[in-house]
Nucleic acid binder design. Structure first.
Lengths: 275, 275
DNA sequence: CTAATAGTGTCTATTAGACAGTATGTT
DNA sequence: AACATACTGTCTAATAGACACTATTAG
């Protein structure tokens, strides 16, 4: 069958040009939590969950916002690329990173055939020290879902971006659902799809894993933690229920957060190794 | 910044060779359920869940077993490739297919840099009519997990393949866990990783989606369905509990399965649209 | 004192687990 | 009749949801 007699011989003579080649990129959706100041000394600062976007300074999609990303190098592990880009963009190493989905429609990039593997990263903003690149900005995320249509609004200091995506249920012949862009006038490429996939993933995983703690500082109050859950799940939770569930994942410290115009609250830490 | 004045002009002059290119493949893990005859007229045929492997007839990994797969064509959507291969391999269209994970270590293929996106397919064997290609075979899957080590045994009519994989927990800095091959003497490439990822995915999704029904014939008894759940979850379930849970997903028909040496049982169908 | 959040007790409703029992076919 | 599986009833344990209550601070 083969004209070679051994694996070594085959490999020595292998012509790597027999199969078509393409470029690959990676896109990273970086989630974090931000505080918004509130003009009432009694009230807690309202939290928002947010995503990091960068403004494209060249074609294609010049001046539109997109997720940070870049090309995969030929001698770089797939996962090394998002790690490299993340370090470039945030100046931090050791960020939680997980693979999301690989997008590969033929025409997803106007330049040429590019397949992109997207990753989701979670970060505690306090680790950043505002050392962002100048073309990057945090956008607060709000989304509203009804009848399988997801409306997403991204808000930065000086811009509001919106897009609309449809969940397409494919009746058991392919993935449980896929997304399709319905309206989008501000985000480059197919990145609205990556953003909603990220939101979905985070929303699901927050319920059965401990990934939230990657977005939390070392010490936090249960009220703060609950707020983050509520943001991501997009619904209010009842205090006693929340505390019951979370109690196994955190340890109370003897530190107390005061100066808030109301009863002070204990600070907690993440308790590892309960799953 | 850019030397072009419009997106069109940029694209017209775009040199697609500026970024390094690589080859991409897809690997498909096809799960199904098979009956094993039992030599007691009263007993039910024992079910096994099984996976389709093909024997490599050329280098690299000549004569080893691997998952069906192939190269992605430059003008073919990423998802079209597994569909094409699945149709080739089984002669059936409309098979449940979902993306699993993209593997991309630099040295995962001895020939050259190849990134592979794996997919999981579920199929009801009765649709096949034994129209398999000659180099393909079904292997029954058994696995045993302890202390984050998964032992997998794949058994066909005339061969037994085994491998061992470790779940590496990465303490919040990357995916919840990744797998690492510990022992493997019979499966080509990094396909043991794809196989365990598929098992994990199926095991998780069977609990909160309806994907099992893709592996079931149109009519089935609740006993049969329960057996499939037990196989995949790798544990016994209690009848009343199982029936309570499943009741919302199935409809009883007036068909009855008789001739089994014991009380006959009603046949059920999948009831769509309950999630 | 008041507004605002922190934190707990408890009752109820729902769901999951366990076991025992009855039903009904084939040989 | 005996075996094997089909199917149901019911008791108990565990979990989730709801609400009301007490606690504590800054201003």
């Amino acid at each position: 069958m083969s004209k070679y007699n051994s694996e070594e011989e085959f490999l020595k003579n292998y012509d790597s040009s027999v199969f078509e080649k393409l470029s690959m990129t990676t896109d990273i959706i970086i989630f974090s939590v931000s505080d918004e100041e509130v003009n009432n000394y009694r009230k807690l600062s309202k939290k928002k969950f947010s995503v990091l976007l960068v403004k494209r300074d060249d074609y294609p999609f010049k001046d539109k916002w997109c997720l940070p990303g870049g090309f995969i190098k030929i001698d770089e592990d797939l996962e090394a690329a998002p790690k490299r880009i993340l370090a470039d963009e945030t100046n931090i190493h050791n960020i939680y990173l997980e693979q999301l989905y690989t997008f590969g429609s033929v025409n997803r990039d106007p330049r040429m055939r590019i397949v992109s593997t997207s990753y989701m990263a979670l970060i505690d903003k306090n680790r950043l020290n505002d050392k962002l690149n100048t073309n990057a900005a945090w956008f607060n995320v709000e989304y509203y879902e009804k009848d399988n249509i997801i409306d997403v609004t991204l808000t930065s200091k000086d811009e509001i971006l919106t897009f609309k995506v449809k969940k397409v249920l494919k009746e058991l012949t392919t993935d449980r659902y896929k997304f399709e862009i319905m309206e989008n006038n501000s985000i480059a490429f197919d990145h609205p799809l990556v953003i909603v996939s990220g939101i979905e993933r985070l929303k699901n995983k927050i319920e059965y894993t401990d990934i939230v703690f990657n977005m939390m500082p070392e010490y936090f109050t249960l009220g703060e933690l609950q707020q983050v859950y509520e943001l991501i799940l997009n619904k209010k939770l009842l205090d006693p229920a929340f505390r019951r569930i979370i109690s196994s994942k955190v340890v109370k410290t003897d530190k107390i957060k005061t100066g808030e115009g109301h009863r002070p609250s204990y600070l907690f830490k993440y308790k590892k190794g309960t799953n």
